[in-house]
């Protein structure tokens, strides 16, 4: 197999510099390090989760330069120089983001495993569309699986957060 010919530890590490939640981090990582591994293991920000291995579930969704990205499907090296926002960066000065509050108030989470990715996709949706219809909400989170809630309360939470954000 190819891996025997070039053992992983012989491949030189690559330097990456990524800004996460406003703070810049520089690390040397194996080239094959995924962005999600970088965020979870190097930076120990474990709010971003891993739920699958085929880019289906969206538990690992973060924003990279403002765009939602499934961080299991990108190498850390590809995000070099980028700005990442994770769930841990949503709360500002002790104030929860309206989406966080709305998810709790409308019971848009049960086990909470999908929630970080769901929040980030929702945020990307609302940044592009302040007043999404239910259909647009469904589409906005179609890449994020939730196995507990049946989605219904997530739609309600996003609608409520959109209303709250329009007022601010």
């Amino acid at each position: 197999m190819s891996t025997t010919e070039t053992a992983a530890q012989d491949i030189p590490k690559v330097a990456v510099e990524i800004t996460v939640n406003g703070q810049s981090y520089r690390r040397e990582v194996e080239p094959r390090t995924l962005l999600v591994q970088f965020i979870r293991e190097e930076l120990r920000l474990t709010g971003t989760h891993i739920g699958c291995d085929t880019t289906y579930c969206g538990a690992c969704t973060i924003l990279l330069d403002g765009e939602p990205v499934k961080s299991c499907t990108m190498l850390a090296a590809q995000a070099d120089g980028g700005e990442v926002l994770t769930v841990e960066g949503l709360e500002k000065d002790g104030e929860l983001h309206p989406l966080q509050t709305a998810f709790s108030e409308h019971h848009g989470l049960q086990c909470g495993y999908c929630t970080p990715g769901m929040l980030m996709s929702s945020l990307a949706l609302l940044q592009n569309n302040a007043s999404p219809t239910e259909k647009q909400i469904r589409k906005g989170i179609q890449g994020n699986l939730c196995r507990c809630t049946g989605y219904h309360n997530i739609f309600k939470a996003i609608e409520a957060a959109a209303a709250e954000m329009r007022e601010d």
């Binding site: 474990t46 994770t86 769930v87 841990e88 709360e91 929860l96 509050t101 989470l109 909470g112």
Partner: peptide
């Protein structure tokens, strides 16, 4: 919810 919406759960 307090911990889960902040990404502070412990899975």
């Amino acid at each position: 919810d307090d911990r889960l919406i902040r990404g502070q759960g412990l899975f």
